[in-house]
Design a protein around this nucleic acid. Structure first.
Lengths: 133, 133
DNA sequence: CTAGTTGCAAAGAGTTTGCATGGCG
DNA sequence: CGCCATGCAAACTCTTTGCAACTAG
């Protein structure tokens, strides 16, 4: 299954790398690109997003309040020893490097049989911004 | 805003307490009740679920793969000093009591400005069952 | 009797799919 | 030129809403 290097593909990829620390819904992406004069069809946006998620380039998540999927750049190789703090309120995904969490990870694994993926452990909670609101 | 004690209300509540450790989609609940001879309208199921979530009786969450809301009994008062391990794969919510996690909680708070709700901290990962698959 | 509740059907929102056209290699 | 990708619109799924009939208090 070869993959063609189309203009739309590059536009979308660039969008994510340019906004690596933000997260977007499919609709937001479509709108943002349209405003830059790069109009993509809805279907194309969804199909490309799906593939980016499969390829591990982008992360998909759903906040428990909202009912829409959000997408954020996964950082490619940069996310190997990161931990992620995911805000359940706004969906923001914070990248954190911290050795302390290694202990926690193995503790949960040993004591609770909850086998977290060491490379992708995610702690859910509420970020500062949402906390204030 | 008084609340009437209808048959449908009781049926739904009983369903959750009887299956406190499982999680269901709205459709699954509707079907399960119908098979017991307790047919509720879709709209009623959704409206009651929404209220149960507001009241904190039931927890709503969305797995990142699936796009549907799942609901699970929150255990009423029993969930005060619990931590929750949420499986992102199947949506299962495990209840865990453990002092160790207190440290972790405050560490994340102090060092990363990620203000988690002490009574509701949730760690996301993958549970044993899904791990094997 | 009054106000909350139910159930049906229709409306909405987000996402997916079918199919003809267009573009990469 | 062959095959994948695109775009439009229609189809789908899950969820919400409008409204008349119903029921608990």
């Amino acid at each position: 299954m070869p993959e063609y290097n189309t203009k739309q593909r590059e536009v979308l990829l660039k969008f994510f790398t340019d906004n690596a620390n933000e997260h977007f819904t499919a609709a937001e992406i479509e709108l943002a690109l349209a405003q830059k004069g790069e109009k993509l069809g809805k279907a194309t946006v969804y199909r490309r997003l799906e593939r980016l998620v499969e390829d591990g380039v982008v992360r998909r998540f759903v906040s428990d309040d909202a009912k829409v999927s959000c997408y954020q750049y996964a950082g490619g190789e940069a996310c190997k020893n990161h931990y992620h703090l995911k805000c359940l309120r706004c969906g923001e995904l914070l990248h954190v490097e911290c050795d302390y969490l290694d202990e926690m990870s193995s503790h949960v694994l040993e004591h609770h049989g909850f086998t977290v993926d060491t490379h992708k452990i995610t702690i859910c909670g509420v970020c500062e911004k949402c906390r204030e609101a």
